[in-house]
Amino acid sequence: MSTLLDVKNLSTHFNTSAGTIKAVNDVSFKLREGETLGLVGESGCGKSVTALSIMRLVPSPPGRIVSGDVIFQDQNLLKISEEEMQNVRGRDIGMIFQEPMTSLNPVLSIGRQLREPLELHLGMTKQQSLSRSSELLELVGIPDPATRLKTFPHQTSGGQRQRIMIAMALSCEPKLLIADEATTALDVTIQAQILEIIKELTDRLGTSVIIITHNLGVVARYADSVNVMYAGKLRESGSLDQVYKQPKHPYTVGLLNSVPTLDLDADIRLQPIRGEIPNLTDLPKGCAFIDRCDYAEQKCQESEPELEEVEDAHFGACWEHQRVNKNLLGITP
């Protein structure tokens, strides 16, 4: 399959009074057509800013895309004009945000908000967009769509709102859907519903998906490949099975061993990653993970490891990747 999105050496910085925060620091990855990519990491690792940079929605100031290329369908999104970018957003790339409460406009009816991209990007008339909107709501499983179109966001539940967001994001049949913590605020049974709808619809449309989440389970269930971010950089990248079964970065190992999951022994003692996330304005000279790492050596203090191919299409950024072993810490399913 051909490459849909090619992010090359993307860097986005934020200038704050405490210093420059390299929220996204030299990140490169590719996404194929129809592929679902999981972008995982903890708060502040840069996963959301990566998505916002692709969409060119980084709040500026204080944020600034410093360098890099985002090649999407043979055009560089960072080089085109704002008008051209507006045609990409919503039409070619759809995005669903974490907060279904705040990402819908509270003073416009749901119908009005659903019709907007249809009329703007696809040039539909009011009649066409109305009937299409109601089809879309039906597609995401909202009962009685015609009535629902006339209601306002506050009259619907969190799960319903997120469905409306999905309907809106997919209304122009985009090539790429970015779901940024789309289900984090929802209850588990509703989360399952929403993720199933996303999967079903994007499978049908052949849409590529980037799932941004801190939930390793969600990624294991829906993604084809995984990127792990830590302190602004990609630390590991590969297929789902490669990364989960044979992680090559100690941070990935740490993440996998610190979540309790239903398939492991219930009495297992979790193996947390010690310490805390480093201050992004004052990162260590070498590897950013060094203070929390069990494999750290002299070399790790001196220079920062770059992402390298450790096995076929599996990348890791660790000097000691050959020693990294998920099972050494005593956890085996």
């Binding site: 049974t189 399952a192 939930n215 390793l216 294991a220 269930r221 239903l262 398939d263």
Partner: peptide, 24 residues
């Protein structure tokens, strides 16, 4: 509820049966 909780085990997730509840 249990079937809605994904595990961090890709192999298992491919084979697991999922009960998806309707509605809110």
């Amino acid at each position: 509820l249990l079937s809605a909780v994904p595990t961090a085990n890709p192999e298992l997730e491919r084979s697991r049966e999922r009960i998806v509840l309707e509605g809110d």
